[in-house]
Every structure is written in C-alpha cells, then in structure tokens.
Simulated scan of single mutants.
Amino acid sequence: MVVYRFLLTPRWLGILALTLVASAVMVLLGNWQLERYHGRTEINEQIDAGRRMDPVPLRDVLSAPTGGSGTVGPPPAEEKTWTKVTVTGRYDPANVVLVRGRSVDRTVGFEVLTPLVLADGTAVLVDRGWIPPVRGGDATAQPDVPAVPPGDVTVAGRVRLSESGSVGVARREGRLETRRIGLEQLARELPYPVHGAYLLLDGQTPAADPLFRAVPIGYTNNWQNLGYVVQWWIFAAMTLFGYGWVARREARRLAGVEPERPIDRAAEPAPQGAA
C-alpha cells in the first residue's frame, strides 16, 4: 500500500474531494427524481381510481364555501383529487367561462366552464367539455356555446384543483374568458361563493350537447422521472469508478508495472542533412 501514498498529496486529495462532491450531488438529484416519480405515480393511481369508482356526493369530498359572493371555499384534501362526485343544481348561463388555448387532437379550441348553482346558493364550476373555435375564424374567435339544459341538472364529474400560474380574466362579448382555470380570480367575477375545486364532467342528466367533446385526461410521465433516477445514479457510480481507475493506473505507473507510453520514433523529425 506504500505505492498509494500519493493519494495523500494535496493534488489527489483535491481530486478526491471534487469526486465525492460531484457523486453526492448526482445521488441527491437521483433521490429528487425518485420523489417526483412516486408523486406522479400517486397522481396516475388517483386518476385510475376515479375512473373506476362510483360517484359519491359532492359533500363527501368538498366542503361548502362559507364566505360571501366572490370568495372561494377550501380546496379538497390532495388525496381526494380525481374523486368522482355527483351533485344537482342549475346551470347559470349568464356566467359561462371560456378557457381559450386548449387543444384536443392538435386543434386549438375552448373548454367551457359553467357555474352550477346549488340549493344553498353556492356554486361549483363544471368543465362541460371542449368545443372547437368558430369555423373559418382564428383560434381566439369565440365559439357558439350550446345552451345549458333548463331546470335541475345532475352532474357526475371528477374533482380538479385550481390551476396554478398567472391568471387574467376578462369579460368579452358577454362571457368570461381566461387562459387558466384559476378559481380565486374567476370567483371575483361571480355573484356567489364558489367551491374550492371544479368538476371535470363525466356525464349529466339531462345529457350534455353532443357538440362537447370530453376533455382528455393526461397521465403524468412518471417513467421519465424513473429514467432520470437511474441516469443520475449511474453517473455517480461512474464518477467514483473513474477516480478509482485513474488512481490505480497512477499507482501501477509509480510501481513500474504500468509501462511508460512508448515514443513513436517514426513520428520524430529526421535529423537535418539526412538523405
């Protein structure tokens, strides 16, 4: 082991420190991606469970808002996201919300949210589905939205959380329009308290207009995160292996086991005056 004493020199100790730090960072990045993998897997499992389950009453999942007009109630517990619920109320056609810039089958159109006003005077926003833009118009031209069914409507849908990010809400041509479903911003434009989650429609009685297309549910790409986990951990192992390989080669050189690289005499310039 005397031959490995060079590892205690400042130069090699510095190389070791850099190697350990780099490996530790890669392991931590792998652990972070592993956490993201588990989180996204749970979301996909919730989506599957919501698809299979029978609907439960809205109040089993979502508490009623207790504030006044323009306020939002508490959000549901995270594990209740994607739960299928049922609720009865009356659609409010005066406060339809168009969510622009939403794509289905590579066509940009609108998702249509309509407040469902319950017997207690509160409302829950229902995403009734996707519709294309006006034929011959651009993607921002407001479409003709099918009329809401009159009277009481029983809705079955899955619980969705408010979307994050900056949200601007404007009233154009008598309808509210936005890019994201931000419940707090939308609630300020509505004349009643709003529940802290919205519903993605699965079905309703009376039946929804056939113009609506179901909004596709995108599963999270959890396998991509798992691939990153393996990638970072392999990089960490390769870094440590590389340090050991270089150190062993240096030890063999110092011990005379690893021969010096031979000089290529043919590559040397010929002496001046040589024929």
Rank of each mutant, 00 (worst) to 15 (best):
P65S: 07
P65R: 02
G67Y: 06
G68Y: 03
S69V: 13
S69M: 06
P74T: 11
P76E: 07
W82V: 07
T86E: 10
V87T: 14
T88C: 11
R90K: 14
N95Q: 08
V97Y: 05
L98R: 00
V104R: 02
D105T: 10
T107Q: 13
F110S: 01
L113I: 04
L113C: 06
T114N: 09
L118N: 03
A119T: 14
D120C: 08
V124C: 06
V124T: 12
L125C: 07
D127E: 10
D127A: 02
R128V: 10
W130H: 11
I131W: 02
V134L: 13
G137S: 13
G137A: 15
D138K: 11
A139N: 11
T140K: 08
A141R: 14
Q142A: 14
Q142F: 14
D144R: 11
P146V: 08
G151K: 05
V153D: 03
T154S: 14
T154G: 13
T154C: 12
L161D: 09
S162E: 01
G168E: 06
V169R: 01
V169S: 07
E173T: 07
G174D: 09
R175V: 13
L176N: 04
L176R: 01
R179G: 15
R180A: 13
I181Y: 00
G182T: 04
L183D: 04
L183K: 00
E184A: 15
E184M: 09
Q185Y: 00
L186S: 04
A187D: 08
R188A: 14
R188W: 04
R188K: 13
E189R: 14
P191C: 06
Y192I: 05
P193I: 08
P193S: 03
